[in-house]
Amino acid sequence: MGDSMGTDTGRKIRVLVAKPGLDGHDRGAKVVARALRDAGMEVIYTGLRQTPEQIVAAAIQEDVDVIAMSILSGAHNVLFPKVMDLLREKGVDDILVVGGGIIPDEDIPALKECGIADIFTPGTSTSETVKFIEENVKRRS
């Protein structure tokens, strides 16, 4: 019974993978979710059409270390900052937030300004994303 007695305890990085907005292109989100899983993380996938409010509520209930969002429709300049505002409103400051999707370079500085830790654009390898998360999670206990 030994092996079933919780030898596999201790912190695991928990990541909420979310698709804010209405676009249904979740190929990237799902590939990233699997890659994070294969890197030993616990990945909670929220599915499509999530409002910023739903994403933040889920992140809190799931007590995640990371929120990873993907948008391909061009709504990032509205929805990413909204998520950051809501997190601040709730006093959450220990969640690393990253974004991905079709996001023009010129939009990135403003997104980082509002608190998104990094933006992964098309062509980014999943291992880069994994590494970034591992190196930048805020909570370690």
């Binding site: 907005g21 209405l22 676009d23 059409r49 409002t51 429709s73 061009g74 709504a75 990032h76 300049n77 509205v78 929805l79 909204k82």
Partner: peptide
Amino acid sequence: LPTQIGYDSDHELALGE
């Protein structure tokens, strides 16, 4: 996308789209 999902432009979920 709001049109594709049957929401008018003033719907809550149409924000940014």
